[in-house]
Design a protein around this nucleic acid. Structure first.
Lengths: 222, 222
DNA sequence: CCATGTGAAAGCGTTCACAGCG
DNA sequence: CGCTGTGAACGCTTTCACATGG
């Protein structure tokens, strides 16, 4: 049987993890597809644009409810709204950036976050030379101010771009200050308590995985 | 039955995809564990350091062969060598960086790649103001030179940090010039032919996934 | 005796075929 | 008639229990 009807502690329907990973792709595909009011898209076309196959799209969307019309397809605008609502994108998020090194600066300047409702509003670093400067629009604070600023600004998400050896301590302080979702770029394993969401972006690992498939002569998982 | 004994076109044993994704974690955990010659590590400890569980470690390592000693554990140095060999890390790779914007510059300056044998040796951009400069040590070429430089330097991997709308064309040209492994940071779906490895790092999607689990009140997949 | 190595079972995720409905 | 929605089959991944061997 397919994985589905798990209830979250909050009592809401919980989607299969694999489906959640694909919803952002559908959202982007739908944005690219434009959306004159009333325009529709078939699972076939949405699949092509998102880089998956059509039955997968239909299965995923069926978990959200029945928002398609048989014989026609899915209303683009409606579907976008439903997916966005499922992902919790009908609100804005405040994001902290910890570690104002190369990668941190790049992320602070990245437009794609703000456009999607994720606003980086504060950066932190230990380097006194960086404190007081701005990354794009984002002020850089001393890391000692982390707790205060996160609480005052009600920041709930964070990007970790510190060196690996300080990442866990930073995470503990962020969580303590009220952050509940973290994206870790530091090359180390981090631990968080229950109720805290953590994902990892591991650049060196990605290249090593590519190395495997390149030497093995096979294609990796999408 | 467990997934295993697929043969690649090259005739080599192909590991389960999920195992391949974890091998870099083990490698890093083993590096952190130090390695006085002869030192060993149990699946239990390796699991803790890599953020997975012990049976998983044993199952994964069993695909590589029997490199542990019952009652003792795994020899750290030996295991590191075997994992590295499986991943194809017993050689150096030349990497191109296409798109010298914020993210491209950050990646060009990132030490972690070179330390692991992935050498970014050329960057490309359309912006005439950037051409001729250097990102860290890496010279920036005009994108029209892409084919020539990739061939001359025998570059086989590439990091795509261009705007989404030019990414597919860039990829086509890279592949045509001999690149066989690509890491895509552009927020778009890319297509490559058989034998070409492609992986994706999708920052906006990661935040949207976190958004889902934060609003649903559950923890996401590691 | 202790920790690995591994079949077997359970859990997820994807694919398929087709019923259902506009 | 066309495309969605979905139960059922299939395949991959994880977990478990324990036999195995240093």
């Amino acid at each position: 049987m397919a994985a589905r009807p798990v209830l979250s502690p909050a009592g809401r329907q919980l989607l299969p993890r694999a489906t959640v990973r694909r919803l952002p792709l559908y959202l982007r595909a739908l944005a690219d597809a434009g959306g004159a009011p009333g325009a529709t898209i078939s699972s076939e076309e949405l699949a092509a644009r998102a880089g998956v196959n059509a039955p997968q799209v239909r299965k995923d969307l069926s978990y959200l409810g029945s928002y398609g019309t048989r014989g026609i397809g899915y209303d683009i605008v409606t579907l976008r709204e439903h997916i966005g609502a499922q992902l919790g994108l009908n609100r804005e998020y405040k994001v902290a950036l910890v570690g104002a090194g190369n990668l941190g600066q790049a992320l602070g300047n990245y437009r794609g976050f703000g456009e999607r409702g994720f606003h980086v509003v504060a950066a932190f670093d230990i380097d006194a030379a960086k404190v007081g400067l701005r990354i794009g629009n984002v002020p850089v604070f001393d890391v000692s101010e982390l707790g205060r600023v996160v609480k005052e600004q009600h920041i709930t998400m964070a990007l970790i771009t510190t060196p690996a050896h300080v990442a866990q301590e930073v995470v503990d302080r962020l969580v303590e200050a009220g952050v509940t979702a973290l994206l870790n770029f530091a090359p180390t394993v981090l631990r968080v308590g229950p109720g805290i969401s953590l994902r990892r972006v591991d650049l060196a690992s990605e290249l090593q995985i590519l190395s495997y498939y390149q030497s093995a002569g096979e294609a990796p998982a999408g």
